[in-house]
């Protein structure tokens, strides 16, 4: 049976992990590669590097990180943040990433999804979507620019279009839940999962192991993404997987 995936996400700026990290036994807690390797050992199913570097010039740093990450990790590496063109896809994939996640640029130019899928295969095209419930609760709007700008685009219309264009996976972040640590946005996830047949990664709101159990029990999402839960050392990925097993949720536990 296909396992549910647990994915730690590392926000990276200027080559360093920016969200607080509190790991026992790591020399440089800010080093994304050390941290990612630790997650690999804990049986993470995939690692996401989210590059929040502000300027274009600093892109060499992330490229170097991807190269190191790809050579040292034995699991898939997805990279997102600031992807604008098909050349950005190429650069990141050639540096050794397995997947590229694209957000704002796909909304400005949806054909980018198709071009990337045609050229590199659907397996590496992840469309990241930040969405928020409308005030009248009639649905969800898609936001860009790190959640600052409402595109006015309806979430369901957008995910459907992403799938048609060739997205291989959706990384769905709930802006209502992100940072709250009070659980994933079950309603929004179910609304999306009902409409697409590609894998969906749940993101935003994870505050504890029970939230991960909850999202797998109440939705058919394929993966749960979390950052602070793991970075702060509150729970290891192995802890999460052990709890999943107790609840009959299939997870990979080779190590």
């Amino acid at each position: 049976m296909l396992a549910k995936r647990i994915i730690p996400c590392l926000d990276i700026k200027n080559g360093k992990v920016v969200k607080g990290v509190n790991f026992v036994g790591l020399k440089d807690v800010g080093d994304p590669i050390d941290l990612a390797k630790e997650y690999d050992l804990q049986c993470a199913d995939e690692v996401v590097f989210l590059d929040i570097t502000a300027t274009y010039e600093e892109r060499d740093i992330i490229r170097d990180l991807i190269e190191r990450g790809a050579s040292e990790l034995s699991i898939p590496l997805a990279v997102g943040g600031g992807i604008r063109t098909i050349d950005d896809f190429r650069t990141i994939l050639l540096s050794g990433a397995d997947k590229v996640s694209v957000n704002s640029a796909a909304i400005k130019n949806p054909q980018l999804i198709k071009e990337a899928a045609d050229e590199f295969g659907v397996q590496c095209v992840v469309v990241a979507i930040d969405a928020k419930q409308r005030e009248d609760k009639s649905g969800y709007d898609v936001y860009i620019a790190g959640g600052r700008e409402n595109t006015g685009l309806d979430l369901i219309e957008w995910v459907t279009q992403c799938e048609q264009l060739g997205a291989g996976e959706i990384l769905l972040t709930s802006m209502d839940k992100d940072g709250t640590r009070d659980g994933f946005d079950i309603d929004m996830l179910n609304a999306v999962i009902e409409c697409v047949s590609i894998p969906v990664i749940a993101s935003g709101g994870c505050g504890g192991i029970e939230d991960i159990i909850d999202v797998f029990k109440k939705t058919d999402c394929d993966a749960a993404l979390a950052a602070s839960l793991f970075h702060f050392g509150e729970a290891t990925i192995s802890d999460v997987k052990e709890e999943c097993m107790k609840h009959g949720i299939p997870v990979r536990r080779n190590k």
């Binding site: 049976m1 296909l2 047949s197 590609i198 894998p199 394929d222």
Partner: peptide, 11 residues
């Protein structure tokens, strides 16, 4: 009768 692509870890 499942999602395509078949993506992830399987036994």
């Amino acid at each position: 009768d499942a999602k395509i692509p078949h993506m992830g870890w399987n036994e």
